[in-house]
């Protein structure tokens, strides 16, 4: 016998009110990231010996620039979600966990913004 209300059972949420949010966002994110990473791997391999002119001409193409922006947004978000779980699992001191999570959030956001800025700077140059 359950003491939970039918509505609470149907929603499947506990006291935190967001049981599956992190999990679901990470799934949505990975589904997008899989093809983007294959595209990135193929692109970087074809640019393996490229000089600056060749590589920037490649990134100036609108499809490449847009895909790179999509990849940057998805990748660094995925990185934050993944590192968050690793920290939750292995860092047990409350203070250290708190600081590490904030550093990961700010750090990945800065990486995403910096990478997007670089893409736009090259694309509009």
């Amino acid at each position: 016998m359950s003491l939970r209300s039918p509505l609470a059972r149907a929603r499947g949420l506990g006291a935190a009110h967001n049981g599956t949010h992190h999990w679901w966002i990470q799934r949505l994110n990975s589904v997008a990231l899989a093809p983007l990473m294959l595209w990135l791997a193929y692109s970087l391999m074809s640019l393996a010996t490229a000089d600056h002119a060749t590589a920037s001409a490649w990134l100036r193409g609108p499809i490449n620039a847009i895909l790179m922006l999509a990849l940057v947004a998805t990748l660094y978000h995925h990185m934050q979600l993944g590192l968050q779980v690793v920290i939750e699992d292995y860092v047990h001191s409350h203070a250290r966990k708190f600081v590490a999570q904030i550093l990961v959030k700010y750090g990945t956001a800065l990486l995403a913004i910096g990478a997007a800025f670089a893409v736009l700077k090259v694309a509009f140059s």
Partner: peptide
Amino acid sequence: LFWWLMALA
């Protein structure tokens, strides 16, 4: 990847 894109910029 961030470093490589920055270098390109």
